[in-house]
């Protein structure tokens, strides 16, 4: 299979980037998307001069780490539902396709180089309140704290979020509501997270807004590209929590 790639190249977060066109030749259908780009990278390295390697990020290659990004033909993580870019294979494309590859676009995700963006805004949202404060010590006994099955399931549904940032990339408004709501809901549902539930949602939303993410307009594009299928019901829950917590805000 042969492909024509239109890839965003940008030296650093200060410079302005542009699209460059590359050919990916002799690609097999079972190659992963990253293998395909690396074949182009090998050629770019051999050529020596010119643009140099295309910078991109990936790590676990099994869809659990949230490192890989890429907006492929306008869709974060590419055309398949419920997977990350590293789980995308070239059999999902047709021979001769033109593929446009862009970095995640958001003010809060500045481009570091080419297709790599700085997602540390998410880390700061977590730092602001995405934790539980507990006394350290020996591990508690199993089943010492009984949790209802449906509550545990709901918390786990939210906890599946791997923080990849595809929700922000896909959102027409560059909003981080799905990510933030997953983190708020996951801890808020469990007894360990309950004491800080109000403080957590206030601080995390404050940080989310301060990072320059957009606001939610309930278009649900985030949910469609989320590799973990996080539901927008958690956004409704976060709205509810935020309203309630705002009423008794003390700081």
């Amino acid at each position: 299979m042969d492909f024509t790639l239109h890839i965003w190249r940008q030296d650093n977060n200060k410079s302005s980037g542009s699209f460059k066109t590359y050919r990916a030749l002799d690609i097999t259908p079972e190659m992963s998307f990253f293998e395909m780009i690396e074949t182009v990278n090998e050629k770019l390295e051999c050529n020596g001069a010119g643009d140099g390697r295309i910078a991109l990020e990936y790590d676990c290659l099994e869809g659990i780490c949230g490192t890989c990004s890429l907006v492929i033909n306008g869709v974060a993580h590419g055309p398949n539902r419920g997977v990350t870019t590293c789980q995308l294979h070239m059999r999902s494309f047709n021979d001769g396709d033109h593929i446009t590859i862009e970095p995640f676009r958001a003010k809060a995700f500045p481009v570091t180089k080419d297709l790599v963006v700085d997602r540390s805004a998410f880390d700061r949202i977590i730092q602001a309140g995405g934790y539980v404060s507990v006394n350290t010590g020996g591990a508690p006994d199993a089943n010492a704290l009984p949790i209802m099955r449906d509550v545990a399931d709901r918390a786990m549904d939210a906890a599946e979020c791997i923080g990849c940032g595809a929700c922000v990339a896909a959102c027409k408004n560059g909003s981080a509501m799905l990510f933030t709501s997953a983190k708020v809901s996951h801890l808020g549902a469990l007894p360990q997270g309950a004491p800080e539930r109000s403080k957590r949602v206030l601080k995390m939303v404050d940080q989310m807004d301060a990072e320059g993410f957009g606001s939610c307009t309930n278009q649900y594009e985030c949910e469609a590209v989320c590799p973990k299928g996080i539901s927008t019901k958690f956004i409704a829950q976060m709205n509810r929590d935020y309203m309630r917590a705002s009423l008794s805000r003390e700081d």
């Binding site: 239109h6 965003w8 699209f19 907006v71 033909n73 306008g74 869709v75 446009t100 862009e102 676009r105 958001a106 003010k107 809060a108 896909a170 027409k172 408004n173 560059g174 909003s175 320059g212 993410f213 957009g214 606001s215 307009t217 309930n218 278009q219 649900y220 594009e221 949910e223 469609a224 590209v225």
Partner: peptide
């Protein structure tokens, strides 16, 4: 809110795609 939203994505995508957002929601 529109001001916040416009600022949130200073560089737009070259290739735009919409997966499930309704036209009504996009043109509010």
């Amino acid at each position: 809110l529109r001001k916040i939203i416009s600022a949130a994505r200073p560089v737009d995508y070259n290739k735009q795609a919409t997966v499930q957002a309704s036209a009504a929601s996009r043109y509010m």
